[in-house]
Amino acid sequence: MRRLLLSISDGRGFDIALVSVPLTFLFMMAGLPLVYNIVMSFQEVDMFSLGTFFRPFVGLKNYATLFSMPETWPILKNTALFVSASIAGQFIIGFGLALFFWTNFPGASWLRGLFLVSWVMPGLVVGAIWNWILSGDFGVLNYLLRESGLITGNIFWRSDPSFSLWAVVIANIWLGISFNMILLSVGLSTIPQDLYEAAELDGANVFQRFFTITLPMMRSTIGAIISLGLIFTLQQFDLFAAITAGGPNNSSNVAQYWAWDLSFRQYDFAQGATISVIMIVFVMIASVVYVRSTRHEVRG
């Protein structure tokens, strides 16, 4: 008994006690819901069996049903398009801005901080703002495009099936730029200045320096930011709720919004869980990439 007490106050027991606190928390708040969700995707769930854990096991039936639905593939395609276009836009513009602020003109760091405003705003507020900007009849985006001669008639961003997904993509890019920019700025600032001086003396011009020094030195940051971007855009829900609600006719619907729609509006909890499980797989892959890229940091 004394040995046990001693171990807990100062020894392996103490270490285990410390570790078990966050582990318990993680298991309760993240692990259990995850497991519950996975189990649910193999069960038959209806409103009456919601309260129990032991429901009829149906194997892969939910998955088979899901992939036989006519809207599944278009929605998965939308999801892939939304994720890749959002990440590409956020990353390219964010990197551009990070490089711009890196030149360190007067007020650069102050202005860079100001950019974070877009990131701290709630998605629903951002969605409301973009609803006004994207509005078909009096939106400022249409006005700009029309006046610059790029379009002749108004684009109904939110109700035209060929533009509705892009309306959300534009808003999401705007939302994610500052986060990308800040992380990339941090990455840029960790590159020692004398590497650039050495490269300059070695005869490299500004583009050669970018491609031979900046990009390779940023590899781990870029890997991390792309995988975080994948995780964040797969979580993006508010903008869909605020701007298009997945419509019209599922033209802007994506997996994460659809999962919610199936579970909590159509009360088809099993299908909702099944979509979530598919998304978990993708997020897990992104997480592995993220962890690996932060581990393999290049340091001189």
Partner: peptide, 27 residues
Amino acid sequence: PRKRDLAMVFQSYALYPHMTVEQNLTY
């Protein structure tokens, strides 16, 4: 600097950390 044709050895060496010795030399 790149048009002056001078070579510099830095106090910190400023070796390119993502390149091998050979790549550093041939940069």
